[in-house]
Design a protein around this nucleic acid. Structure first.
Length: 443
DNA sequence: GCATATGATTCGGC
DNA sequence: GCCGAATCATATGC
């Protein structure tokens, strides 16, 4: 009983002493002795000072013995639990509730990304999807296996660094947490520390370390992004189309020179024919867009420098004409053997002369500049002229273009736009002949 | 190494 | 959404 009172008295005394020292002056007496009993107050302060002095005068052994006495006191646990309870009921509980934050969306994004990139997931096959994409983007399985393996090697390197650093952080976090917990447990013998407080401190430590981890994840993501952009960026991985593909596209372009705007179907057909699978290589749409790109570039570059493309145009015109000759020959033979009395009877006798008029566009005036037909052009002209005649004579074929329209200049108008946008376009390659896809009617 | 060619992207107009 | 124009970035040829 006396012992307990003494403890309380000591605590109260120390508290009062603290206030006095901090304030640099004595506190007013608690029970309304204000100014009435100045001698009594002086006496109290003197007692307190004396107590402090005796504490400092105590030897270390004496202090330790006192401390031990306090620690072993039977009322100490009860007193500490009361103080802990008060602490929890005040600021601690409020702060604790506030710090119960939801999972960080930024962290979740980073985690998802690292998982998707194969950095944080299971090592087996990690990054294989991205590597496969890189391989596909680089235009084929065979030509870029070196780059593919390079990509994988670099990704593995990033992965290793990430895991090493992560391990280090986790280890440091655990070590520090253990250390702090031990420290707090030790301190809980001399000051009231509740398990909840320890828990909260652990939470704070974990949050601090997880913020460091987030930085690590962020920089890892950045590294992966840079790697990806280096390997997957279509611009960087630009590959020229194959000769055949370019030829097919050019054939179409020059045979539809009056209206070189292939429809969606025509583009698809062209893409299929060209087997253009460069760039992203993820299906038809990309390929079709490559065809669109090609035509876009071609139109502009043709228009910009017609003279330069003249030779190319003639070449393709000649090619087209020669192929058409064969087609016509076949058609004539067909019409003669199948139904000589019924010309133009269905698909057997007809053929798709690939817009012959366009073939000569390159030889006609463009933007007002008249072009003197080359030998090739003249040959082609005579060939087609003959063909036209033969067709009209033998098969009764008429494509709606008279002799005049055959040679009429489908040209770029003065505004730089393409005239005669009514030309039906088809993907029919001159080498293909009848039965081709008629698709481009919209332009 | 440089000039040119070429596929892709961006941006503004319609 | 497509097109023209400008531009970028890489490929290619010399």
């Amino acid at each position: 009983m006396d012992e307990q009172a003494r403890i309380m008295q000591t605590l109260a005394g120390v508290s009062l002493a603290c206030h006095s020292v901090q304030g640099g002056m004595a506190l007013p007496p608690p029970h309304g002795h204000e100014g009435a009993d100045g001698d009594g107050r002086k006496q109290d302060i003197g007692d307190i000072l004396h107590q402090i002095m005796t504490i400092t005068d105590q030897s270390l052994d004496e202090a330790q013995a006192k401390k031990h006495g306090l620690n072993c006191h039977r009322m100490k646990p009860a007193l500490f639990s009361v103080l802990c309870e008060i602490k929890e009921k005040t600021g601690l509980s409020i702060r604790g509730a506030q710090e119960e934050d939801p999972p960080d969306p930024q962290l979740m994004r980073l985690d998802n990304m690292l998982l998707a990139e194969g950095v944080s997931g299971p090592e087996k096959g990690g990054g294989s999807a991205a590597a496969a994409a890189a391989a596909a983007a680089s235009g084929g399985a065979s030509d870029n296996s070196i780059e593919h393996s390079d990509y994988r090697a670099k990704l593995t390197q990033i992965r290793q660094i990430y895991h090493t650093e992560l391990e280090k952080y986790e280890q440091a976090c655990n070590e520090f947490t253990t250390h702090v917990m031990n420290l707090l447990r030790e301190q809980s013998r001399t000051r009231p520390i509740s398990p909840k407080e320890i828990e909260r401190m652990v939470g704070i430590i974990h949050r601090k370390f997880s913020s460091i981890q987030m930085q690590l994840k962020q920089s890892t993501c950045e590294a992966v992004m840079i790697l990806r952009s280096r390997f997957l960026d279509a611009r960087r991985k630009r590959r020229n189309f194959s000769k055949q593909a370019t030829e097919i596209l050019n054939e179409y372009f020059y045979s539809h020179l009056s209206n070189p705007y292939p429809s969606e179907e025509a583009k698809e057909e062209l893409a299929k024919k060209c087997s253009i699978t460069v760039s992203q290589g993820m299906g038809n749409r990309i390929t079709v867009s490559q065809v669109s790109n090609w035509f876009g570039n071609k139109r502009i570059r043709y228009k910009k420098n017609i003279g330069k493309f003249q030779e190319e145009a003639n070449l393709y015109a000649a090619k087209t004409a020669v192929t058409a000759t064969h087609a016509v020959a076949a058609a004539i033979q067909n019409s003669q053997t199948n139904s000589p009395t019924t010309p133009n009877s269905g698909s057997t006798g007809s053929f798709n002369l690939p817009n012959s008029g366009d073939m000569f566009m390159s030889m006609q005036s463009l933007n007002g500049d008249s072009y003197q037909g080359s030998q090739v052009g003249a040959n082609v002209q005579s060939q087609v002229d003959t063909l036209r005649h033969v067709i009209n004579q033998t098969a009764g074929y008429s494509d709606g273009l008279g002799a005049n329209s055959l040679y009429s200049p489908h040209s770029l108008n003065t505004n730089g736009g393409w005239q005669d946008a009514t030309t039906p376009s088809s993907v029919t390659s001159p080498t293909e002949g009848p039965g081709s896809v008629h698709s481009d009617t919209s332009n």
